[in-house]
């Protein structure tokens, strides 16, 4: 008899999530609470990166889950649940920004040209596992500060694409911008972060002689 093959982890997670979403749609509050627990951290992080304000980020977090609960019957399962949540969160966060800067219309699709060239200013070899030089907390602070120092439009694209691992198409969809716009912002975000992290992660001077 053929032994049953193990279901790969991502598939099993997706099945698991589909079951929880189905239970939540059927009105099981415990199931919805499980979805909240699963994604609240990521939604809050995203909201903070867009609004740059703790109070606004908390409002966005609450509104996102309240709206998700309200609109759950309309979620058809064509996208991942997280992608659907992100779309709600991005809209809420943009509304917050609009309220704060009422004189200026805010959109993530603004023509954005800083005149910056695609340049890398810091060129130095890094340690093999540079993250191991820092404690978990220190590392998180370094990484978050580096993201926070990016221009807002780069920040959001980078977090969705490279931290939350949405695809280019999904990122373009939730932000309402074109695929080339996602790609160009992602490239610049990656290069700027690399530059910023070089000062923490570059190989110490004395170790350079190991090459000689």
């Amino acid at each position: 008899m053929k032994s049953p093959e193990a279901v790969p982890a991502p598939v099993s997670e997706a099945l698991d999530e589909a079951a929880i979403v189905a239970r939540a749609r059927a009105g099981d509050p415990q199931a919805f609470a499980e979805l909240v627990e699963r994604y609240e951290r990521q939604i809050y992080r995203l909201a903070r990166h867009i609004t740059h304000n703790d109070e606004d980020a908390e409002d966005v977090l609450q509104e996102t889950f309240l709206k998700a609960y309200e609109n759950l019957p309309g979620f058809q399962g064509q996208s991942k649940f997280y992608t659907w949540l992100v779309r709600i969160a991005v809209n809420e966060a943009l509304m917050k920004l609009r309220k704060r800067r009422s004189s200026k219309v805010v959109s993530l699709d603004e023509t954005f040209d800083t005149g910056e060239e695609t340049v890398a200013r810091e060129i130095a070899v890094w340690e093999d596992h540079p993250e191991e030089q820092y404690s978990r907390e220190e590392l998180r602070r370094i990484l978050e500060e580096a993201i926070d120092s990016l221009p807002p439009l780069y920040r959001t694209v980078f977090v969705l694409r490279d931290v939350d691992e949405l695809s280019t198409e999904e990122t373009a969809g939730v932000l309402g911008i074109s695929i080339p716009a996602v790609k160009s912002r992602l490239l610049r975000a990656r290069l700027q972060l690399r530059d910023k992290l070089t000062r923490y992660f570059k190989r110490k001077q004395e170790d350079l002689f190991a090459y000689l």
């Binding site: 809050y44 990484l143 990656r190 290069l191």
Partner: peptide
């Protein structure tokens, strides 16, 4: 090489847990 390392490090970055009072207000 360093951009690849940048991406690897960020991919493993978990979001910070919510402060308990923030989670409580949400629930």
């Amino acid at each position: 090489d360093t951009t690849k390392k940048t991406l690897q490090i960020y991919k493993g970055m978990e979001a910070r847990p919510l402060p308990p009072e923030l989670h409580a207000r949400l629930m």
